[in-house]
Design a protein around this nucleic acid. Structure first.
Lengths: 229, 229
DNA sequence: AATATACTGTGTATTTATTACACTAAGTAA
DNA sequence: TTACTTAGTGTAATAAATACACAGTATATT
């Protein structure tokens, strides 16, 4: 503290909800804690904000430490500031989410020591989480539900080339409801952010679907416009 | 700190954007600072989060200290965590907004000592603000723009009884654009949250408009539904 | 009393978006 | 060849959004 702020001991931390789409399921990355409090519990990846990093930088650092990934767009969605949310003292936490492309082959061994392991876990089968992390997750899921209705963030979860059925799966998983196939396709194509490829899905034991890719340039133009599902 | 968190000196503060509608204009409550840094500058009302209060409680306290008002719904909208945003040390600030009903007669002398005075200032004529408060305000305005499209928060700014033209004014001020009168009325009435009163506007030098009031019960049912302007 | 003023209050036609709904086509596997 | 599984497609009906103009009424002015 350079001068005169009347502070008490407290800290600010970051917690991240990292979404991924894998095996047809919506997953998040959880860590198994290696330290007290909540040693051996599952929790959202998080850490204290360092003295010389902004909260955004801190979130990116945590993501990087955990996955090796950089340059991922993370969105801050809420700050949790209950007095007793951390058993060891006053810790206010700023929550972020990010959508990650799981190539299927990504190495996701934790690179830090604060976790025993990290694992992608189906959001439908979450274990009991330490701290108030279930609450933080719930709010994060709510947030992306609202968000996916207005921006096609589903593509951030998908591989570079994907089928329309995969896109629809992501929407259905996030929104928690079935959508009509014909209407869904009509709508998603109407945004004109998908480019149809001259290529088909491989390795499936049925008729292969056409692959599409996402056109970032056109997507950028979409910002600000109201779209909805 | 009860135990072992490796903290450095830092603090968390709250800053509030308090919106009011008065004299046909959208205003916010600003304070003129009495202390360094930014002594004699205008700034958003704010303060440090206390050791034994949650960030939500802290926001309510600040609002109460400044206006005497309690039980006002405040919405947290973003946390600003740049390293150098406060010249005297590391201060991360959590921003809230609230919509206040200015009866026209509200006493709004600041009750704290940290401000010389507090004043409702037209958002179109904001003075230069201390810290990163212009940025915090900008984000807050953006937020209520998005929000008013989906929930009729305009009513929180209006007196108990109001005319449809007043409602439209609030929408136009927040959205920053003119709306068609007939379409606006059709839409706002379609939500069925307004009760037409058997009473007319008074003290105007032209045809008096019908007064309406807001039906909270019906409003509650509206939550979750998607509405848009 | 007549007139000017300023805002209130109303309807319809057009376009666009949303919803509901079912079958054939194509590839794979047995 | 057949059975299986998913891909891919269109239309009609309904609902929502938009564009657009003038007569009605209270007050103030002369």
């Amino acid at each position: 503290m350079k001068e005169v702020l009347p502070v008490f001991n407290s800290a600010v931390s970051i917690d991240c909800v990292l979404f991924g789409f894998d095996g047809g399921e919506l997953k998040i990355l959880l860590i198994e804690r290696n330290e007290e409090p909540f040693k051996d519990w599952w929790a959202l990846p998080g850490n204290l904000v360092g003295e010389n990093e902004s909260v955004d930088q801190s979130a990116s650092r945590i993501l990087h430490e955990l996955t090796g990934l950089s340059d991922i767009y993370m969105e801050q969605y809420y700050t949790f500031g209950e007095v007793d949310r951390h058993p060891q003292g006053r810790v206010i936490t700023v929550a972020y989410y990010a959508m990650l492309r799981l190539g299927g082959d990504k190495a996701l061994k934790p690179l830090t020591t604060y976790a025993k392991k990290a694992q992608w876990i189906n959001v439908k089968e979450l274990p009991k989480l330490g701290f108030d992390h279930q609450h933080i997750f719930d709010k994060g899921l709510e947030k992306i539900k609202r968000r996916i209705k207005h921006l096609p963030i589903a593509f951030e979860l998908l591989p570079e080339k994907f089928t329309l059925t995969q896109v629809q799966n992501v929407y259905e998983l996030i929104l928690g409801k079935k959508l009509d196939k014909r209407n869904f396709r009509k709508k998603i194509l109407s945004f004109k952010v998908l480019k149809e490829l001259d290529e088909k899905q491989k390795g499936v034991s049925f008729r292969a679907a056409t692959l599409y890719k996402f056109d970032k340039r056109k997507y950028a133009k979409l910002f600000g416009k109201e779209i909805s599902f």
